[in-house]
């Protein structure tokens, strides 16, 4: 019996090994929610779609940007506490001669002091966790800020620069809050796989700047705010 089982096992293994050789490869299908608890696997196998930016053409602007809209004082804040707001902070910091305030967790009451508000849209579970903020708290803060900005009439820039991995239920909710009041969209284009942002911009006659990589934010900030 013992011999039989050992042989059976060995046969199993050999059979298995033989089978290995001729199998076709699998391709992953399911698209995991990047906000889901434990992301054990690739949350974002790149999605193929028609992109307007490319390795050769890093920045594409559709529509015309009226630079005179964006006067100081300027605030950079975050909706979703991802690292994107600090990227904008760094990028704008490299434009010489611009004074601005960077406050990832700014609150509605502070909005009265700013004429231009750049909002880095995109939720990060890690970032929210690091800041000790719950999803609905962040959503409430965002709602309050948007309501206040409607009153003050400040110019809003909706910046979604986290790319495809930054899309998700909460991120989209936050983006939908910002878009109706935005005067300009800055978008890292791989996040546009469902054309959500370009379609919105087209329907509402809104200028949109598509970028290929995060580093392009430096150029974009320079184009908008550079003297």
């Amino acid at each position: 019996m013992k011999k039989f089982i050992v042989l059976f096992l060995a046969a199993c293994m050999l059979l298995g090994l033989a089978a290995c050789g001729r199998q076709e490869s699998t391709s992953p299908t399911g698209q995991a929610d990047p906000n889901a608890g434990t992301a054990a696997v690739d949350p974002s196998a790149p999605i193929e779609f028609d992109m307007q930016t490319s390795e050769e053409k890093h920045i594409v602007t559709i529509g015309t940007i009226d630079k005179s809209l964006f006067e100081g004082p300027i605030l950079i804040t975050s909706f979703g506490q991802s690292t994107d707001a600090s990227t904008l902070d760094t990028a704008l910091g490299r434009v010489s001669g611009v004074n601005y305030t960077y406050k990832a967790q700014a609150i509605a009451d502070e909005m009265a002091s700013y004429k231009t508000v750049i909002i880095a849209v995109g939720a990060s579970t890690k970032g929210l966790g690091a800041a000790g903020i719950k999803d609905d708290e962040e959503l409430a803060r965002a709602q309050a800020i948007m309501a206040k900005l409607k009153e003050t009439g400040a110019t809003v820039i909706c910046a979604h620069i986290g790319g495809q991995t930054r899309r998700g239920a909460l991120s989209d909710k936050l983006a939908d809050l910002v878009l109706p009041q935005a005067k300009l969209i800055i978008l890292k284009e791989d996040a546009n796989f469902d054309y959500k942002f370009t379609k919105y911009a087209e329907a509402n006659n809104l200028p949109i700047t598509l970028i290929f990589a995060a580093k392009d934010t430096v150029q974009v900030m320079n184009d908008i705010f550079g003297k």
């Binding site: 699998t26 299908t29 399911g30 698209q31 995991a32 054990a40 696997v41 690739d42």
Partner: peptide, 13 residues
């Protein structure tokens, strides 16, 4: 195995 099975979607990790 776990990594691959998760990729097939609809599974609970």
């Amino acid at each position: 195995f776990l990594l691959v099975l998760l990729q097939t979607g609809g599974n609970n990790d």
